[in-house]
Design a protein around this nucleic acid. Structure first.
Lengths: 118, 118
DNA sequence: TGGTTATATAACCTTTGAGTTATGCAACTG
DNA sequence: CAGTTGCATAACTCAAAGGTTATATAACCA
């Protein structure tokens, strides 16, 4: 996971409901590890690990505030993943549109569905 | 993974660069397993597995076309995950905005940063 | 019918992920 | 100083992810 690209790290970080819940809670303000651990039925080390994953994905940053290291959301951490999704959806929809118009124009578009390789 | 929620399945599916590459290739049209396997340096069973993950995430559907079972993109498969990201980003930005205006109005907003618990 | 092609499944291996408890360490507090 | 609090790390378990090869199934072709 260390060697993966940024988009993969972000999606992987978001793929865990526990981590998404942490992000939601952090949207109300910075919180420390112990505070995050309360109310999750999970141990403190587990939270630390999840925070490390989120930090690696660029979704949170850790501060140094005396004895505490509160986690803070990084809003732009979503940018790359969001861009990927937006681009993907755009391309897919565009293709479906082309396909529909093709279907409307000609009446024998089967060759667009049947790959030449098979 | 079977028991996970839909958003988690989608993000997990997108977290693998191989699967994202498959999706990109599928955006040019339906493709069968063997065709997808060509050019990926991966075995055919691996592709079948990835397709199953993508199908479970609602990102592709499999057709039955004679002997072949071509995979087709499902555009709306991204909807839930996209909605989560959009909602999250909205909430985060909103909070940062509140924080900034708060900082601009009063000059002692430290209590908004220091959780009462610590 | 027999052979080939497309796909799925089985069995296996290795790596990673997510969690635990126990412990260390640094910083604050009396 | 001693004690406590916040967090990190170590060492471990267990399950799942991602890949492989070998094999089964099923449809097409001659």
């Amino acid at each position: 996971m260390q060697l993966e690209d940024s988009v993969s790290r972000t999606f992987a970080a978001l793929a865990d409901p526990t981590r998404r819940a942490l992000l939601e809670r952090l949207s109300t303000g910075e919180l420390g590890v112990v505070e995050l651990a309360r109310g999750t039925a999970m141990s403190q080390p587990a939270i630390t690990k999840h925070l490390k994953v989120l930090e690696h994905a660029g979704l949170v940053s850790r501060a140094r505030l005396g004895q505490r290291r509160p986690a803070r959301l990084r809003v732009d951490g979503l940018d790359e993943a969001d861009a990927w999704m937006r681009r993907a959806r755009g391309a897919w929809v565009a293709r479906l549109d082309r396909l529909e118009s093709h279907l409307a124009n000609s009446n024998g578009p089967a060759d667009a569905e049947e790959p030449t390789d098979a």
